[in-house]
């Protein structure tokens, strides 16, 4: 786990992002890439809440929806700038996620998942019923595009940039005391409590932060599509992003991004229409069968070996250090 979990992540992400940005030219694939990138951000939020904090959330897409609506409302009703929208898109989901987590964090994991599912339903009802603000069932159309990322290609760069920033934040977080507390907590709550980790506060903060990641994704979505409706960022997507995170490897920083790319590209290549679900479901099961720690779990030993071949082996480190990372 170590090789892919140290600071190499954001460097790798940056490298891949630059490669993508330079090489991807086809307008349709750029469009696909933007949406995959947005989903990858939501999947990253699953990586944080599920992969690190062990909280399975089925409300990540609704958090993104809140972000999308926050900026949409500011843009459509008040003519506000997208940056004001960004602030709303980060803070609202973070606050809601934090409060929900405070309420339910003590429950067992499945109950937490159910609570998030209920929250998702509540968010959806509020969105579709609050006609004067959210546009009700019809949704909000005419959300202003970003002046500084007007073409799909520029928007693609923006999405890549945001992903790299989020990955860097995520990585720093894991290296901090907070991150270590989170890790102990996931493996052994009793141990964490004994260590004096404020369990509820730490888990809730992680959950709030994860909701904020999703909110940013929603912000990107709203300004890209220019329309957001009540069914757009719903439970189906919540489940998809969990799948992306798990398939890529939820406990690896880059796992959710890998999963999002693999599933996103797969969705494009599978024959569409009626039978698509069959291929999708079948492929999903196959990947789960083959890759138990996600695709990065498979790649890791191989990657580590390659790295050892290139980089001279450092002196053997003490076991304590190994356990810490």
């Amino acid at each position: 786990m170590k090789q892919l979990r140290n600071h190499a992540n954001s460097a790798a992400a940056l490298l891949i992002a630059v490669l993508f940005a330079l090489l991807l030219r086809d307008p349709v694939w750029i469009d696909v890439a933007v949406v995959i990138g947005i989903q990858a951000l939501i999947a990253l939020s699953v990586g944080l809440s599920f992969g690190q904090a062990g909280l399975l959330s089925l409300a990540q897409a609704p958090f993104a929806a809140i972000g999308a609506y926050a900026t949409g409302i500011i843009s459509v009703h008040y003519g506000g700038s997208p940056l004001a929208g960004l602030a709303g898109a980060i803070m609202l989901p973070a606050l809601l996620g934090y409060l929900l987590a405070r309420l339910v964090i003590r429950l067992e994991p499945l109950a937490v998942a159910l609570a998030t599912l209920s929250l998702a339903a509540i968010v959806e009802v509020v969105i579709r019923s609050w006609d004067s603000v959210t546009g009700g069932y019809v949704g909000l159309s005419g959300i202003s595009p970003l002046a500084w990322a007007a073409s799909p290609r520029e928007y693609f760069w923006l999405v890549l940039l945001v992903i790299v920033i989020v990955i860097a934040l995520y990585e720093n977080l894991l290296a901090s005391r907070f991150g270590r507390a989170l890790n102990t907590l996931r493996h052994d709550r009793a141990r964490a409590m004994a260590d004096g980790v404020p369990v509820v506060a730490v888990s809730s903060a992680a959950f709030g932060l994860s909701a904020a990641f999703a909110g940013v994704a929603g912000w990107l979505y709203a300004h890209y599509v220019s329309y957001v409706g009540p069914g757009d960022l719903g439970t189906h997507l919540s489940i998809s992003v969990v799948l992306m995170a798990v398939i890529g490897g939820a406990s690896y920083v880059l796992g959710p991004v890998v999963g999002a790319i693999v599933l996103g590209v797969l969705m494009r290549m599978l024959p569409a229409q009626e039978l698509q679900g069959l291929f999708y479901g079948g492929t999903l099961i196959l990947i789960l069968l083959v890759a138990r720690d996600g695709l990065l779990g498979i790649a890791e030993p191989w990657f580590a070996r390659a790295l050892r071949a290139i980089v001279p082996q450092p002196a053997r480190v003490a076991p304590e250090d190994e356990r810490r990372t």
Binding site: D31, V35, V225, Y227, G229, G231, A272, Q273
Partner: peptide, 15 residues
Amino acid sequence: DDRTDAAEAGRGVNQ
């Protein structure tokens, strides 16, 4: 196929 999904519909027009 827009898959009853708004973003997919936009992408469909594009493609």
